[in-house]
Amino acid sequence: MSERNGPVRVVAAGDHFVLPGLIARAVGHELGEGPVDVREVTLGWPLEPFGPVAEVQEASDAEDEMIEALADGREVLVTQMGPVTERVLAACPDLRLVVVCRGGPVNVNLDAAKAHDVRVCFAPGRNAAATAEFTVGLLLAALRRIPQAHDLLTRQGSWEGAAYYTYEHSGLELEDLPVGLIGYGAVGSRVARALCAFGAQVMVYDPYARGEIHGLRVTSLDELLSRSRVVTLHARLTSETRGLLGARELGLLPRGAVVVNAARGPLLDQGALCDALESGQVSAAALDTYEYEPLPADSRLRALAERVVLTPHLGGASRAVAEKAAVIAAAEVGRWVRGEPLAHCLT
């Protein structure tokens, strides 16, 4: 694609987080003086939930909007939640490059993209720092009962949160605390560094991690769980890791342990976690992701408010993440236009 007869025709299908204007500016900066025609489209997420659309997962229900936006010879689509289905691809024969502003193109039918000769790229690492920081925040909130004390004081006008200063109800501190990390990728490694700075006894289980790590490498999940007062999840969701922590695994934790998950909801058996919370096997949990999202109104977790910290999948919600995603995506567009190898390409 190094020689062109006209401007690069791009659709910046952003949303209310990765704004289309951020994408357009990043593409313009990347291409410099080169002619570019960017059409901006705003999808509804996160004000409207994502979900399965046709044969793809985690996308905005906007096939018609994508087809309309990609009309008149648009070659490039940069998006976070736009559904790139067989229907969309078949209706847009000029499309040649899709760049997804996420850690994986779960909104793209990769087989169909390959069949239609469309390259698909993604934006790894754009939210690693934000998610790691959020994870540490969840951990501190759960250990010290910060949300519960805040709720008592501000919503109920009660000083009863002072009971958390009694020995029986006071929380744990990170210094010298055995903390087990399951997964040591871009997020897990950052969490490990932060917890080491607090003085925690960090242990890591990740059979795929190579090289030096911050903390003690543990060779089995069972050993990690039996030694950890806190366990935090950072693994990828695969067929092997789905339900990684269930009733048996939670039972291996020291009684009164704390569980944190800001990775993927299905890594953790929520029913087993609720059982463990109710029995006292787990004293507290902090969750940002769930088996089903949005969290159902009848979820057992809602009835355990005194023991849980629940947030609506906000780990990657920082302005820097949106800006990084746009820049990473624009860099792929630049490589494609210049005929260079794509850095993060799956088709």
Results as ranks from 00 to 15, higher is better:
Q57F: 06
L244I: 06
R39F: 05
N109A: 09
L140P: 09
G157A: 10
L47V: 05
A112G: 14
V282F: 14
T238N: 08
R255E: 04
R242A: 07
L314R: 07
A200R: 09
D94M: 04
A128M: 08
G103E: 09
L237K: 04
R248G: 01
R4C: 04
V327D: 07
D15I: 05
L181P: 13
M66P: 01
L250R: 04
V191F: 04
P105Y: 01
L216F: 06
D206N: 12
H169W: 03
G51D: 07
G211I: 02
V41D: 00
V327H: 10
L253M: 07
L216D: 03
T135K: 10
C345M: 05
C196F: 01
G73N: 09
D64R: 15
L22A: 13
Y164S: 03
T219D: 13
E323H: 11
A113P: 03
A90L: 09
D288N: 14
A13K: 08
Y205E: 01
L195I: 00
F122L: 03
V88W: 00
A149E: 07
M1L: 08
R9I: 02
L70D: 00
G256E: 06
I328A: 14
G316Q: 03
T347Y: 11
W45Q: 06
M81L: 12
T42F: 02
W45H: 13
C121S: 11
G246S: 02
R9C: 02
P294W: 02
L273H: 15
S299T: 14
L314D: 04
L221P: 00
A130E: 03
R210H: 11
R319V: 00
N127K: 09
G339T: 08
G246I: 05
T289A: 15
V108H: 08
V78K: 02
V321T: 15
N109C: 07
P49I: 04
Y184M: 06
T85H: 10
S2H: 09
R145M: 04
G185Q: 05
D64S: 13
G32D: 11
H234A: 05
L110A: 10
T232L: 03
V53T: 09
R119V: 12
S283A: 15
E86D: 13
D111L: 05
L287Q: 11
G243C: 03
V231Y: 00
L250E: 00
A276R: 12
L140W: 08
E160W: 01
S226T: 14
R39G: 10
